[in-house]
């Protein structure tokens, strides 16, 4: 479980991008962060993952303060899996190498087994296991990055716009994969999404950011029905 308390953050000497964010994401749930471009969604995810150090506030994982841990430390000690928004594969390495890099902390005996299980799950990757990641399509890269994170058995999965740039069919497949992960692994999934409508359908709760503040939050089903939410982010009026 992730708790974010009063996190303020920014880059270098620049202004605050996040002005005191509070957020909770429980184990076994999908929590989605929505909001317009540039409002700080990726920055929030990077704060949680350990790439941006908060200027104030706390990040806790399973009750422990992890605010100042580095990204790689969080991976090992708190089981964080992170799929960045862009550049989320090792492009010059093969599909197999990409996935296996995620398995460095998995016991040797279990590695192969989990690898094969993931390939069965994602046949698109199995067919290209010896190809370089740079030869994959956008959707395949997304799956590859997901597989790289999953082979480590994460307890927390951070996904930054997993459906960005995908065809509708591929987007559906990726969202399907994400809700399957929740059902199967019972882990805490926090994802940033632009495709609000589809994302809310698989989410439990959601937060809407606006210029570095939480503008709205609630159960995903409530937000889907909310008229203000509909007109602002879901591109349509509430059904009468």
């Amino acid at each position: 479980m992730i708790e974010v308390q009063g996190v303020r953050a920014g880059y270098g000497d620049g202004p605050d991008i996040l002005n005191g964010i509070n957020l909770v994401a429980d184990a076994g749930k999908i929590v989605t962060i929505l909001g317009p471009n540039g409002c700080g969604k990726s920055t929030l995810l990077k704060c949680i993952a350990g790439f941006v150090r908060p200027r104030a506030g706390d990040v806790r994982m399973s009750g422990t303060a992890v605010t100042n841990l580095k990204a790689h430390e969080k991976v090992r000690s708190h089981g964080v899996g992170f799929v960045p928004q862009t550049d989320n594969v090792f492009s010059s390495m093969s599909v197999t190498e990409n996935i296996m890099l995620g398995a460095r902390f998995v016991a040797r005996a279990e590695r192969e087994q989990r690898f094969e299980a993931l390939l069965t799950q994602y046949p698109a990757l199995a067919a290209k296991r010896n190809r370089k990641a740079s030869a994959l399509s956008g959707g395949e890269r997304q799956l590859l990055s997901l597989a790289r994170a999953l082979i480590a058995k994460p307890r927390i999965l951070l996904l930054d716009e997993p459906s960005a740039g995908l065809s509708p069919r591929m987007m559906h497949e990726v969202f399907e994969a994400i809700s399957e992960i929740r059902a199967r692994e019972g882990i805490c999934i926090l994802m940033v999404e632009q495709n609000a409508f589809e994302a809310l359908h698989i989410s439990d709760t959601a937060y809407v950011l606006s210029l570095g503040d939480v503008a709205m939050q609630g159960r995903a089903s409530d937000l889907l029905a909310d008229p203000a939410m509909r007109s602002l982010y879901l591109g349509g009026d509430a059904p009468h």
Binding site: H72, R76, N88, V89, F90, L101, R104
Partner: peptide, 24 residues
Amino acid sequence: TDLGRCMRATATNNLLADATGIDT
């Protein structure tokens, strides 16, 4: 070797290497 894999991963994509648990 594992160190070599970490070297190649870090060379290709430093941020992702960190996100994969490599002490870059």
